[in-house]
Design a protein around this nucleic acid. Sequence first.
DNA 1: GAAGATTGACTTATCAATCTTT
DNA 2: AAAGATTGATAAGTCAATCTTC
Lengths: 156, 156
Amino acid sequence: VANAAVSTEVSPADIGQLYLELHHRLHRLVDDAMNANGLSMARAKVLCQLLDNGPMKQADIAAGLRLAARSITDTVDSLERDGLAERRPDPGDRRAWLVAITEPGRKTVRAAMIAKAKAMEQIFGSLTARQRGDFATLLRAIGDSVAPNQGEPRAR
Amino acid sequence: VANAAVSTEVSPADIGQLYLELHHRLHRLVDDAMNANGLSMARAKVLCQLLDNGPMKQADIAAGLRLAARSITDTVDSLERDGLAERRPDPGDRRAWLVAITEPGRKTVRAAMIAKAKAMEQIFGSLTARQRGDFATLLRAIGDSVAPNQGEPRAR
DNA sequence: GAAGATTGACTTATCAATCTTT
DNA sequence: AAAGATTGATAAGTCAATCTTC
């Protein structure tokens, strides 16, 4: 090939391998950090949405997190069971619920955010600002090439 | 801060957010590509190991993929059910099984590898060789900072 | 009919407990 | 006791089917 001289050539497949292996470790690291603080990633993501946006319909939570409605039902069930969020009837639409974060939920999510930030610091903090900028640029480039039209949930 | 002039400062938390969101999409893309070819990522990973290394004890498969033994039992069950792999008693250790890929398994995994390579091409192929090299460097740097001692499975 | 939510069935991953063999 | 494998329980995600309401 013309590129034979490039000793450090990395194929898309190589990158994929590296990426997948690293992700497996990062995922567990972040999840463990959250678990230690009483929330999982999934539960924290929902609670964050509620903290930022106020009471939300489950369909909107799902859309915001790009999750299936099914997953939201379960997650809200578990948050409600633990008293971190509550379902209220939507006065404007009797099909829907408005899910709201509770005061204990606020407290919990604040602690979890700190734990998450610490985990992210542990993972990405060793990079220089320059490296983080480059990494962000690459992630965005990959994202764009994979789905030029990001908004769509998923083809069915 | 001294870095006030850097307009594109990206915090570890920002990177984490970007990373997690992108992963959610990449994961589904790869998984869909594999599914279309009769294998999931999880099943393909195990089958690849068997293709590369010949018959293996389940504990070795688990160690190679950094998965819990529990996951291997289930995955091998499903591969065996579909005739893609088979358990044979380990002549040297009556506690263990040797898991071997079958001929249909070989055929299936070859097709799946092609599908996976195509997906990786779709995801990372738009990057220049230079960008892929940079990305690989960053992934390795992150991996090193997260777990200097990579070999360990997981603290318990 | 479409939209919001729930439910059932499935996959992939975990931990903890158990059983057998080393 | 430790190691290999299985099993049960749980979590997070998917799709497909269903029920109620718009």
